[in-house]
């Protein structure tokens, strides 16, 4: 398996802010890779380094087998990029911008251009200054998706789209996957990544903290279990990997580390299972687990207030 993008130990600082702190990222050729993280985690900075717009302070970056800083223009002919903030020239129409960007990339699939305009319901005759945020994003998406390139780099491409257009976007990415095109999709919308991506990297404070397929990552998290037993449960609390246990008579609710699931199930069935609801972990939970440290704990200030 070849890799379209390999980043290792990437550092980037702006003054005293350490935006990237030893980031590792690998995107295999032909996969749709989700790049997940909240605002300010370093997603856009990473992408800008990948595009040769920023130069990393330390670390190795390889893009389509080349060095994005030195071979920028040459490599860019093989990729298309949709920025998170799309700004258009006020006096150029959307259609003109799509054509211009396409030509500068070295060509545009005319048939696909027309088809995408129709699917995204975009009027190409409006001037840049009159488009809404969503429509500006559509202009950049049409230009990128109609380009005949190996790699798509999309930085939060749906942040201004309505749910209908988001659905169109998902279909488009699904089609790109079937054509074996590589896609790096940065997003903070979990359902989008969950629906589209083969593999996911979660970035936090300038570092990738988890990477793998959704199935891989699920192993790292918890399954939520609700069971009604024939008798009151026995010895469950002592098992490793049990969290938030709540026992009311014969009813049990708990969170189980997915790796320990088997042992827990065996223990439960020993008491006789009458009904069972098991929910696989959502990406939300996975994500929140990684970020719960970052959410300011509001409770901790209360005792102090009470003292006063």
């Amino acid at each position: 398996m070849t890799s379209a993008i390999v980043v290792s130990g990437l550092h980037k600082s702006y003054g005293s802010t350490h935006a990237l702190d030893g980031l590792d990222l690998e995107v295999a050729t032909g996969e749709v890779h989700g790049f997940l993280g909240p605002n300010g985690a370093g997603k856009s900075t990473t992408i800008r380094v990948l595009l040769g717009l920023l130069r990393g302070d330390a670390g190795d970056v390889s893009l389509l087998g080349g060095d994005p800083w030195h071979d920028a223009a040459k490599l860019h002919r093989r990729l298309a990029y949709v920025p998170g903030d799309v700004n258009l020239w006020p006096n150029l129409t959307g259609g003109e911008v799509i054509d211009l960007l396409g030509r500068l990339r070295g060509g545009l699939d005319e048939k696909k251009r027309d088809e995408l305009l129709r699917r995204f319901d975009l009027d190409p005759t409006k001037k840049g200054r009159t488009y809404s945020k969503g429509n500006r994003q559509k202009v950049a998406l049409v230009a990128a998706l109609a380009a005949d390139v190996e790699l798509l780099i999309l930085d939060e491409p749906t942040s201004g789209l309505d749910p209908l257009m988001e659905e169109v976007f998902r279909q488009c990415i699904e089609e790109e996957r079937q054509r074996d095109r590589t896609v790096l999709l940065s997003s903070h919308i979990l359902s989008e990544v969950e629906a589209l991506c083969d593999r996911i990297s979660i970035i936090r404070r300038g570092k990738v903290v988890e990477t793998g397929t959704l199935a891989d990552l699920r192993h790292l998290t918890r399954t939520s279990i609700q069971a009604e037993l024939a008798a009151s449960p026995n010895g469950i609390a002592q098992l490793p990997g049990i969290h938030d246990l709540d026992v009311e008579g014969n009813r049990v609710r708990c969170e189980v580390d997915t790796a320990q699931l088997e042992a827990v199930m065996r223990q439960l069935s020993a008491s006789g299972i009458k009904s069972l609801v098991a929910q696989p972990p959502t990406l939300e939970e996975l994500f929140l687990r990684h970020y719960e440290d970052d959410v300011p704990a509001q409770d901790s200030t209360e005792p102090e207030a009470a003292v006063r």
């Binding site: 223009a73 860019h76 002919r77 903030d85 960007l101």
Partner: peptide, 16 residues
């Protein structure tokens, strides 16, 4: 205004 970025992400070099 972030209008240079999409251009520089195409085959256009900085010098051009």
């Amino acid at each position: 205004a972030l209008r240079a970025e999409p251009l520089l992400a195409t085959g256009v070099s900085r010098a051009q």
